[in-house]
């Protein structure tokens, strides 16, 4: 059986909030290393890969592989009943038809308990190869969100160009064009303000801004975001959490003219 206790419900609330507009029905695949989710959006353009490591829970117990088939709209309805600071416990049997969730207020004067019906989801799994990306950019997640939102006001697509002079986000729209160029920032006092660019070769790829703006809903999970880019392969947008947990989004590039 699964028993997983989170010190603060807000971790799961934020993760589900960040992905529920991209994917609706998906399996939480549980085993002794944690809770994983991999799901593509309906158009097969974006992929969500979540890993909540056992280390992010206290305690975490799951002695065999358990697939928890969830509708994220339903899960959101239940999670809305949890306060951010509540202690959240997930429980499921080995072949579950429901997921038990309890929310305990931190001063323990209130315990809420919900059982959520599960679905049998036959999910496609994609093999994601380990990739040495040509460019890895680490930046404040709020900055990335601002760039994507600002450019989406002008255009459907953004071209991300990483070179020795920095990283340039450029768009062309009906009303005109725009671009934002970022250079390396080293803020010793506040490392989360750093912009780091690791480059092995220049890259230039075009992506749909609609999806990038959607990924930015994960902004609350981490103060920094990492973009991994190589020519002609999907972009990886990564939000790292404590305990080695992460939320990753993959986005297929736009090609041709």
């Amino acid at each position: 059986m699964l028993e997983a206790r989170l010190e603060q419900a807000q971790l799961l609330k934020k993760v589900v909030d960040a992905i529920k507009d991209l994917v609706q029905d998906c399996n939480f695949d549980c085993n002794d290393s944690g809770i994983a989710l991999q799901a593509m959006d309906n158009s097969h353009v974006a992929l969500v890969s979540m890993m909540l490591k056992a280390e992010s829970f206290n305690p975490f117990r799951c002695d065999r592989n358990i697939a928890i088939g969830l509708n994220l709209v339903s899960l959101t309805k239940v999670l809305r009943a949890a306060q951010n600071e509540d202690i959240l416990t997930l429980k499921a049997e080995d072949a579950p038809d429901s997921l038990n969730l309890t929310f305990e207020s931190s001063d323990k004067d209130r315990i809420s308990e919900y059982d959520l019906k599960l679905m049998d989801i036959d999910q496609e799994h994609l093999g994601i190869p380990d990739t040495d990306y040509s460019a890895t950019i680490s930046m404040p997640s709020a900055e990335f969100k601002r760039i994507c939102t600002d450019l989406m006001a002008m255009s459907e697509s953004v071209t991300i160009e990483a070179g020795k002079d920095g990283i340039k986000f450029a768009c062309n729209g009906d009303i005109g064009n725009g671009s934002i160029t970022l250079r390396t920032v080293q803020d010793v006092e506040n490392k989360e303000n750093n912009i780091e660019i690791a480059l092995t070769e220049p890259v230039s790829l075009t992506f749909s801004l609609k999806y990038l703006v959607n990924f930015c809903k994960a902004q609350n999970l981490s103060k920094t975001v990492k973009l991994h880019i190589s020519n002609e392969v999907p972009l990886l947008v990564e939000y790292a959490m404590e305990g080695g947990s992460y939320l990753r989004f993959y986005l297929a590039p736009k090609i041709g003219d």
Binding site: L47, L126, G127, I128, E156, Y250, L251, K254, I255
Partner: peptide, 14 residues
């Protein structure tokens, strides 16, 4: 206008 690509072109189904 560039064409939106499909992720399945890059990642094999397993």
């Amino acid at each position: 206008t560039p064409i939106q690509n499909d992720l399945s072109e890059y990642f094999a189904l397993i």
